[in-house]
Simulated assay, not measured.
Amino acid sequence: MYIVSLIYTASLDRIDDALPAHRTYLDAQFAAGNFIAAGPKLPRDGGVIVASHMARDTLDAILAADPFAQHGVARYEVTEFKATRLAPGLNLPRPESA
């Protein structure tokens, strides 16, 4: 799994202009099972995405398709981790190599 930290690199006006397309992108990634959680940071200087287990190059390609990336309004810091404990009832696919 991955924690993706988005850091805004543009004004909030530019972020807000790209936000509808970014939300559509997020909807598609949730529907595909790629993302588990997402939301803005507080204060609003970026966001956080929790991504499912996948190859890192696959995640990089998914993030490159984000309208925030395509409009150059955010950069991404990615941390991979191995989830060894999950909240009861959280239905996540288990990685094959876990």
Rank of each mutant, 00 (worst) to 15 (best):
P95A: 01
S11Q: 13
K82C: 15
R23I: 14
D60P: 02
Y8W: 10
L92S: 00
L86Q: 14
L12S: 07
D57V: 03
G46N: 11
N34Q: 07
Q29V: 00
D60M: 00
V73D: 02
T24G: 13
Q70W: 01
S5K: 14
Y8G: 06
A69N: 04
S52H: 11
R75F: 04
H22Y: 08
R75L: 10
D57M: 11
V78C: 00
F35R: 03
A37G: 09
V4S: 01
A83C: 11
I62Q: 03
Y8R: 09
H53S: 06
V4P: 05
V4D: 03
D60A: 04
P40T: 06
T24L: 15
A65Y: 02
A74F: 02
A83S: 13
G47K: 00
D27K: 09
Y76N: 01
V73E: 06
T9S: 07
E96T: 08
Q70E: 07
L92C: 05
T84F: 14
I49V: 07
L6R: 04
L59V: 05
A51I: 01
D13W: 10
A83H: 04
T24K: 15
R75N: 11
L19V: 08
V78K: 00
Y76H: 07
R85I: 15
I3N: 07
A98G: 14
A69E: 01
I36V: 12
D27E: 15
H53R: 12
A21G: 11
A10K: 12
D66W: 03
D66V: 00
A55V: 05
D45L: 15
F35V: 02
L90Q: 10
R94F: 09
T79Y: 07
I49L: 03
G89H: 04
M1V: 13
T58W: 04
I7N: 15
G72N: 08
R44S: 03
D27P: 01
P95M: 02
T24M: 15
L92T: 00
A32L: 05
D60L: 04
G89N: 06
D27F: 04
D60N: 01
E96H: 08
I3G: 02
S97D: 15
R14D: 14
A55P: 06
P88I: 09
A18Q: 08
I36E: 10
I62C: 02
Q70V: 02
S97T: 14
A87E: 08
D27Q: 13
V73G: 00
I62K: 01
L19E: 08
A69T: 12
G47A: 13
A37P: 03
R85K: 12
K41C: 14
P20K: 11
I15T: 09
S52E: 10
G72Y: 07
Y25I: 03
P43V: 05
G46Y: 02
N91Y: 06
I15P: 04
P88N: 06
E96W: 06
K41G: 14
A21R: 15
M1G: 12
A31P: 04
F68S: 01
G47R: 06
Y76S: 12
G46H: 03
T58C: 10
A65S: 14
Y2R: 06
F35M: 04
D13F: 15
L92D: 01
I36A: 09
P93E: 06
L6C: 06
S52G: 11
P20Q: 03
L19A: 14
A32T: 00
R44C: 02
G72K: 10
A98H: 11
I62F: 05
H53K: 09
D57P: 05
A38G: 05
F81N: 00
D13P: 03
G33H: 02
T84E: 14
K41M: 15
